[in-house]
Amino acid sequence: MSSITLTASASANAARRGNLLGRRLLILGTWLAFMLFLLLPLLVVLGEALKQGLGTFLGAIFEADALSALKLTLLAVGISVPLNLLFGVAAAWCVSKYQFRGKSLLVTLIDLPFSVSPVIAGLVYVLLFGAQGLFGEWLQEHDIQIVFALPGIVLATLFVTLPFVARELIPLMQEQGTQEEEAARLLGAGGWQMFWHVTRPNIQWALIYGVVLCSARAMGEFGAVSVVSGHIRGYTNTLPLHVEILYNEYNHVAAFSVASLLLLLALLILLLKQWSESRINRLKAGAGEE
């Protein structure tokens, strides 16, 4: 009898050892893939940027066209992200708190920018607002410039980042249901009071997470913005477009310097994301204990 237990536990040990080996291999493989495909290229970018010393690196970043590209990028992010925040909250609210026809269609359509190629997103605005476009003549008569200027860049950015906030909020708000809001209503809270004191605390960290993702994408968008930018140096080039221009001008060090500036912004955003994620998890764990 005891010998049987012994063999059983021995084979279990062997199985565990096998599992352990598999686990280690998988972890090792993941790390290797991560280093090869993500870390290495990033290090190359930094290495190229610093190849001619810190002075050249900083010179490229503080050059007038690069600064104006940075300014334009932050401006486009600063306008499109708050607008997407409003849209995301409104859309998630509709979908999770109300019942109406065509709801699932709406949820599907919110994801449209994920599946449409950014180039098409850009071209759509050229076809609508370009001089030969649907509203082109009217816009020209009133001297309003949309494509090849800031409004076009913001519109294109808005389009590609539309789903981010809504996508974060919808599942969370659906899970939470409407009970708390109903209770608030019964206790006499107004609409804004209810939103601010009941809904907002529940969704706040998911909201921040969505905004962070949205900002990251808005900052890095290339395709759609490229179509509507017009590529005027120092005026309508965002950071990603500026990187391409510098690269095409054989200006490698400057291209990689500006690229690492983008990288730095991305890392900053990643930290923000990590922080908001941990807050969400803590909130969830807290909810579980109650």
Partner: peptide, 20 residues
């Protein structure tokens, strides 16, 4: 003086579409 550069056909297209 502002500059914009790109493939010649593409640039002509942009001017036709309203690049001023």
């Amino acid at each position: 003086i502002q500059q914009s550069h790109g493939g010649s056909g593409k640039q002509a297209r942009a001017v036709i579409d309203g690049l001023r």
